[in-house]
Design a protein around this nucleic acid. Sequence first.
RNA 1: GGCCCCAUCGUCUAGCGGUUAGGACAUCGGCCUCUCACGCCGGUAACGCGGGUUCGAUUCCCGCUGGGGUCGCCA
Length: 477
Amino acid sequence: MKPRLRFAPSPSGYLHIGGARTALFNWLWAKSQGGVFVLRVEDTDQERSSIESVRAILDAFRWLGMDWDEGPEVGGPYAPYFQSERKAIYREHVERMISGGHAYRCYCTKEELDRQREELKARNPKAQFVYPGTCRNRTDQPDLPYVVRFKSPREGSTEFVDKVFGHITTPNAAQQDFVLVRTDGYPLYNLAATIDDHLMDITLVARARDHIGNTPQQILIYRALGWEPPEFAHLPMMLSPKGDKLSKRHTAVSVQEYRDRGYPAAGVLNYIVRFGWSAGDQEIFGLEELVKKFSWDHVNKSDGKFDDKKFADVAFEHLKRPELTPLDAYAENVRPFLAERGLTEPNARTLVAAIPGIRERARTYKDAASDLDFYFREPPELDTKARDKLLDAAGAARLVELADALAAHEPWDAAALEAAVRTWSEARGLAIKEVAQPARVALTGRSASPPLFEVMVVLGKERSLARLRRAPALLTA
RNA sequence: GGCCCCAUCGUCUAGCGGUUAGGACAUCGGCCUCUCACGCCGGUAACGCGGGUUCGAUUCCCGCUGGGGUCGCCA
């Protein structure tokens, strides 16, 4: 049977970076095995779920380049893929569990249980409240609101073999009679996930380690329903730099935030995949390569801390390498950030010519847009501090002379230009620096830029000479 | 507290009984240089502790310590 993997987000916010990692591992395994990747929306909590979140999550998936074979928008043979539309299915199986003696209706109110919980806490702050089983053996059926609870076995233990953690055994006595269905009739996570994973023929459930404790409960449900559990794989946690749970307080945690900051999607994926997984010493991977190399054998068990610097470096690596980010892709990705700066229609030829010069300088597309700015603005924005430091009247006058000298210069390529300017400078007893730095201010408006002669080539002869001749005007600008 | 899990440089990790314990990021020093970068060279830096098993443990076992997860009518 072809492997069927799934990612099942609850649409109560953006796609979290940790969630993206879980999804990625599932996606990679599905791709590499010729299997199916399913997206299922766990929206049984009506209070917290929203359609905006669904859209945000799907957008994040699209941006990351993780496509789903079944799920929202694309449908599939196991539809519907929204749990809120599957209530009838859950109800049917819950009835079966009740009549089979594996579940029961509990009429204890939340208020009542909360009160008991508090009382216990008051007497003994360390104690943990456990549902006392009040309705466990109840035979009457009062006309009152109720929840459905699982009738946990009191003896024995539940075990499973995790693809990452190996054998895990939990005594059943540690399990209380957890709730399956809420008063409002909506199923709870453990119930809905279990039923759907089975009905959707999921073969491997891969999720973060914080679900490891749910697994025995879910296995108990599978058994109660007479089903065989799928395989399980739990991933170590991605923690904040400080070592606690990753949350909004620490760093950028939503996928869209990384997009908005100008990081390349493949770089984001590359960083998170290396989190808990490795392939020898290799650090940088393209997406296709990941599909080929990913396997569960090299997934770690220990949690890790998110590192912004390492993250930035991995992303940068993707920006630098043309084999990972081809020129045209780079151009497309930087456009929105140029647009943010008001440069909505940058000359396409100039853009493509300029990118090689900035791609090893810009750590994000946002930085790239900033670095590229001067190519598309006439005159370029002037950094007056750079001007004050590097350009004076004598220097400006020299640049005009240089422009005149270069007017007849052929060919207009970097090597020839450099040779010409060096010769020109030497003839005047000037170090190249004394000409290049003022020229940089005139040509780019800044103190830092790609190599001067490359800038001149991208700018073209006409614009380069015009900018050099404008140098004296800059002094009073 | 119950249950479950984890443990190699500051961080992500390689290692699957015998290695000068490797790589990457970060950091420090240097080189390159028209600026900023990139790149290159080099340095500092780790097997938590205690017992076993073994000719030999980072590696296997046990305990301790430390860390994390989870104990909801959230997922």
